[in-house]
């Protein structure tokens, strides 16, 4: 110990101690910290949340409150989960205009997907909620289309129509068309129940059920749907069919009748 004590005032002593301390900290950290990947995630996650918070404060806080606690202009976002954020912002419904009609309509999204992810991470950090589904959950692989159709008719058709063309609700509200909606967003809508829609958590409609419904909608209400009978006429049923029959059916026949009646035998005219 004498030797050590004798050299404690050596000019390099501080450096040595510093090195030792660093090595100890580093070694301890290396020993106790979780996997290196997770460590990287943790930092980027906190960074994402930070970025999300910034975006939130600029774009959302005026209605939803500075900490997501909500205000008279917007509901609390604590516990809505990243799925709700991804749906609302991803479909352009949020941010909503200051004066809305009966319902916030779908429009062109304002944020990029990266920004939406950042916002979602921030909101998710406020309280646990449904998370954004993975491609595996909403993708077409392994889905049962016929089962999806049955589930759709049982749970969704009373507002969204047989093939998801949408329908009216009370006082100007409406169930929007599902044509051209991203499968991920359909999944999230079922999961979170935006606006007037009831939510269908996994306890009500399992993840597999949701996948089936999405696959059914893709089969009957997408750009790849084939209509074996010809023009779909909006897929709205007898109202548009009746209109078509009157205008193009009877209209054409009356035009033909006028044409036939105008061509009479010439005996009288000449």
């Amino acid at each position: 110990m004498k030797k050590l004590s004798a050299r404690r005032r050596h000019p390099l002593a501080a450096v040595v101690v510093l090195l030792l301390a660093l090595a100890a900290t580093g070694g301890l950290y290396a020993a106790f910290a979780p996997a290196g990947k997770a460590q990287a995630d943790e930092t980027s996650q906190s960074l994402t949340i930070k970025e999300g918070r910034k975006l939130y404060e600029v774009g959302c806080a005026s209605c939803h409150g500075t900490g997501g606690q909500g205000s008279s202009d917007g509901p609390s976002l604590v516990g809505v989960g990243s799925a709700a954020v991804d749906f609302q912002v991803g479909t352009g419904r949020m941010p909503a205009a200051t004066s809305q009609g009966a319902q916030v309509p779908r429009k062109k999204p304002v944020y990029t997907q990266t920004q939406i992810d950042q916002l979602a991470a921030y909101i998710a950090s406020l309280g646990a909620g449904p998370i954004v589904p993975t491609k595996q959950q909403y993708g077409p692989a392994g889905a049962d289309i016929a089962k999806g159709g049955e589930l759709f008719r049982t749970n969704c058709a009373q507002c969204h129509n047989f093939t998801g063309k949408g329908g009216a609700l009370t006082k100007g509200k409406f169930a929007p068309t599902l044509e051209g909606v991203d499968p991920k967003h359909i999944y999230e809508a079922m999961q979170t129940g935006p606006q007037n829609m009831p939510s269908f958590p996994d306890t009500t409609l399992s993840s597999k059920n949701k996948k089936d419904i999405i696959a059914y909608l893709h089969a009957v209400d997408s750009s790849e749907t084939t209509n074996p009978g010809g023009l779909e006429l909006g897929g709205l049923g007898p109202v548009s069919e009746g209109l078509f029959a009157w205008i193009f059916g009877l209209g054409a026949l009356i035009a033909v009748a006028v044409w036939v009646a105008a061509r009479t035998a010439k005996a009288k005219k000449s």
Binding site: R153, A157, H160, F162, A168, G229, G235, P238, V239, E241
Partner: peptide
């Protein structure tokens, strides 16, 4: 023009109903 596409409408079940049923 397509009319009454029953395949898109589905079979009748008393527990099911769709909007726009005219």
């Amino acid at each position: 023009a397509q009319i009454n596409p029953i395949w898109a409408i589905g079979p009748y079940r008393v527990d099911q109903v769709s909007t726009g049923a005219q």
